[in-house]
Write a protein that binds this DNA or RNA. Structure first.
Lengths: 192, 192, 192, 192
DNA sequence: CATGAATGAGAATTCATTCAT
DNA sequence: GATGAATGAATTCTCATTCAT
């Protein structure tokens, strides 16, 4: 069905391009459907974007939860979380940027609310993981766990982008290690 | 003179709006000049943007350097640096986002190069401050100082934006304190 | 369909106006379509111009070749050729001027090449007719047949334009007769 | 004085560029005066153009008349005339094109009239030379001498332009010889 | 005499959206 | 369900012209 093809194409286009540079033409082209079909299946660009974001984040949460289910040590949980987020930011930089940092893109109230919700849920999810530190032998610093989650997201996003334009200088592994150090040392008194 | 008025208006507009949503019409309107006056003073939109970015960052660097000149303890230097960066991000979020994270906005080679230079200089400036930790009794963690600077910028940017949409929940002081904790604990083994 | 209507309108507008004075607005207006429709059907002004030129010259060549097919005497061929060219210049002065005399109008390489090709083909076509004189009992003067063709085009263009602003002084028949005399006597030692 | 400098610069600019692509900015630049100075000295672009045309043609006529004064044989007169016209067209193609072929450029009535007058005078001048043929032992063909002059101008203009883009193929001498042949054989029964 | 900052009408182009089929 | 031709508002940019100094 073409709805599915459109979403897939839209994920690509919105991931690679800033919202205003991601054109409906390009999406239709990649989905191999007529332009009208986009509007047959979605009320408009922003609604399509909303759908795409939801889909991307659902997939993301599903993947990450699968890895975190077992009662692995906190250290490993953090590591997995970082790894998945780096994947997300490396693949869908523009899309995730909007969700986390630029929700004020001129969307209708409608769309805006859902994006905010999505972000809030995501931050809650992260905050929950971080809070685990408090019940552990390690201690989450004297930090609001939401602020901590937000700061963590920021570090992940900016280092991902820096990595993308300096791939000759660092390996993906370097990136992961350094980000892990920064984040764990910033959030926990000690870990392991 | 209207050149100055245009720059001021452009700083506002580019600070509040994403590059593509910042229109020359809006800038002309706010500067209270005719559209043609923009083009009399600047070759085009991207060149105007470049000018605005340079101006903003020059001012920023001037302000921050003034505060850091004296041989104050590292801890205070970091605190000042954070404070000034929060100011920057709270006032000019879109503008600084482009410089630090989205330089690939479809600019001409010309403009692109200058923006990249500006970013590199800024990161060097930050990295230099961070490296001081190594000569102190405190130790900069086993981190590439540029990656550390980039991560720090990310934390600052994302927490600033979060703060802007949750001003009822946190005070500006809360923000500063928490960010200070996150950053110092993430970058240094201990501080003071 | 509106593509055809646009081409027709564009032929008119480009025929009557110099390229830079022929505006897309005017073309849209005459074609009774919205401005956007022009860009739905053609990538831009210069491409539309190219299409218009090709169409005009294809029609022209078709018409003239139909008349010249039979093995009529050279004299009649020349006469027909002159007649058709006068038609062309009287109807589409600006358009043909560009093709024959002002191809350097600031077009993209792309468009430029096709226009040059068109002109070259046209001159070859004319030169071929003129060369026939050499195999006849008449003799083409000691002239490069391409230069001769170019000169002939020049005479046709300038006399057409003169005629247009002095229609009270000469009839179309006068024009044809005089041009025929000038051209045949200039190119051939004698004719018939 | 700057008026003179403006005229000189304008001659250059209007000679090298089509009227609409010849900008007042460029003229001011080349004349090394401020833009306002153009309007201090001339009421507007078209009036400046008119002045430039008059100057160019006055100079042209003066030069050509100097060469034709003596009672040289008709053949030589024609040759000189051709040579001077080729010079004109090779140096000032756009400017002369407007005068001879594209007077309808959107000029004010005012300017239009003077341009028409200039053209008419020029054609008269040419026609007079051609008429000499009738009183000579040679005979001007059964041609209206004005039409003949116009046709001659057309041949000169188009071959000049062709020459400019095929300079590798022909020398300036070739051009002159061939044009001489074409024109004399077209206008006179025989010459010398 | 001369300036040059400022103007604003107009031009090309883009793109999300609509709608008849 | 799906199409794609058509739209028009918005946007960047150009340039002849004006005018206070």
């Amino acid at each position: 069905m073409s709805k599915e093809r459109i979403i897939k194409a839209a994920i690509e286009v919105f991931s690679e391009n800033e919202y205003h540079r991601a054109s409906m033409d390009e999406i239709a082209l990649r989905a191999q459907v007529a332009k009208g079909t986009l509007y047959y299946n979605f009320p408009g660009k922003s609604q399509l974007f909303k759908t795409v974001v939801k889909r991307t984040f659902e997939d993301f949460i599903r993947r990450i939860k699968a890895d975190l289910q077992s009662s692995i040590p906190l250290k490993d949980k953090i590591q997995q979380t970082i790894r998945h987020h780096l994947d997300l930011f490396l693949e869908s930089r523009h899309l995730s940027h909007i969700v986390f940092n630029d929700i004020s893109n001129g969307f209708e109230e409608d769309v805006l609310d859902e994006l905010k919700l999505l972000r809030e849920e995501h931050l809650n999810f992260l905050a929950t993981i971080l809070e685990e530190g408090k019940c552990d032998e390690n201690y989450l610093r004297d930090l609001d766990s939401h602020i901590a989650a937000v700061g963590m997201i920021g570090t992940l996003e900016s280092t991902s982008k820096y990595f993308l334009s300096h791939q000759n200088k660092y390996s993906r592994d370097d990136l992961e290690r350094q980000v892990f150090t920064m984040i764990t040392m910033s959030l926990f008194n000690s870990i392991e």
